[in-house]
């Protein structure tokens, strides 16, 4: 059985493996790791059902791995190998799988999530969109909040507020607060630390139920981005002193064993996927629905 800890560690080691592959020149293009933010999707995973639609962003590996037990498919996607989720066409930030879609333009997914929520309204399912604090610079966010509140849509917006957008700290980009912006639209807002998986679930379970009946909600998590924006582009100092669940949980019973298991699992996935042939693109085949 996969525990929350296993899932957290899988994401952590997966992201480290990507940075390692990049350093060795074995990955094409770019990637954005979610190091430090793993708790958010892992905590949310059991609160989201198979009929819910999840919209992820550029920093979405954790979102994917918390929803699908498929590190090999994701790595194959990022490496352009056989068995890739989207044949290697989308890559790190453009993934589509049943009930899950990520795309790489800031704020773009929110209107789409509103459309999905409109489709789902009354069914008990919801649309969940992950965005960052930097996304709040985009006008589409506000058009979407307005519609979600106006139309009473089952929209859950999860904000991973890591205090930095690429290299720009929030205080140079945001006037006022996310809470006040939500209040202006009559959208419920709750702020949470991203420290404790079960605490997050306890707080969110009733709130997410309310979303399902048409009360949109913005959940703002305070998280630390422990890695660079993409790779080797961190301009901050003092990152190593930021709080890290990995360090804090390391003396929990069974941590070392779980950590070793996750490390080994990712290691074997990397070896196995690297050995696969290149992916092929059946570009005209009509395929999977979202």
């Amino acid at each position: 059985m996969t525990t929350d800890l296993d899932r957290l560690l899988l994401i952590r080691h997966f992201e480290h493996a990507l940075l390692d592959l990049f350093a060795k020149g074995e990955l094409n293009g770019t990637t954005h790791t979610c190091l430090g933010q793993e708790i958010v999707p892992v905590a949310l995973a059991p609160l989201l059902g198979p009929d819910d639609r999840v919209f992820s962003n550029h920093r979405g590996h954790g979102h994917y791995l918390a929803r699908f037990d498929d590190p090999a498919g994701l790595l194959a996607e990022i490496m352009g190998r056989e068995g890739a989720v989207c044949d290697g066409v989308g890559g790190s930030q453009h993934i589509l799988r049943e009930g899950y879609l990520s795309t790489g333009v800031q704020g773009e997914s929110l209107p789409v999530a509103v459309g999905a929520a409109l489709h789902l309204r009354g069914s008990g399912a919801l649309a969940c969109a992950y965005i960052g604090d930097g996304t709040w610079g985009e006008g589409a966010v506000y058009e979407s909040l307005n519609l979600a509140a106006l139309w009473g849509l089952p929209l859950l917006v999860v904000v991973e507020h890591n205090g930095i957008a690429q290299t720009t700290p929030t205080e140079l980009a945001m006037s006022g607060t996310i809470a006040a912006r939500c209040a202006a639209f009559g959208v419920a807002h709750t702020a949470l630390p991203a420290d404790d998986v079960s605490e997050i679930r306890t707080v969110l379970t009733p709130l997410v139920s309310a979303v399902r009946t048409g009360s949109p909600l913005v959940v703002e998590f305070a998280v630390n981005r422990l890695g660079p924006h993409s790779k080797g582009d961190d301009t901050r100092s003092g990152v190593s002193e930021l709080r890290d669940w990995y360090r804090e949980m390391s003396d929990v019973a069974g941590f070392a064993e779980a950590d070793a298991r996750a490390r080994d699992l990712v290691g074997s996935v990397v070896r196995e996927v690297k050995a696969r042939p290149l992916s092929t693109w059946g570009r005209h085949a009509v395929g999977r629905d979202a």
């Binding site: 639609r53 879609l101 209107p111 789409v112 509103v114 459309g115 489709h119 058009e143 307005n146």
Partner: peptide, 23 residues
């Protein structure tokens, strides 16, 4: 009927279409 939000209403249409509706 929608507010004056061309970006959002086009995105909403895309979201409906993505879910199998015609928008």
């Amino acid at each position: 009927t929608t507010p004056i939000s061309e970006s959002a209403i086009t995105g909403v249409g895309a979201g409906l279409a993505l879910c199998g509706d015609t928008a």
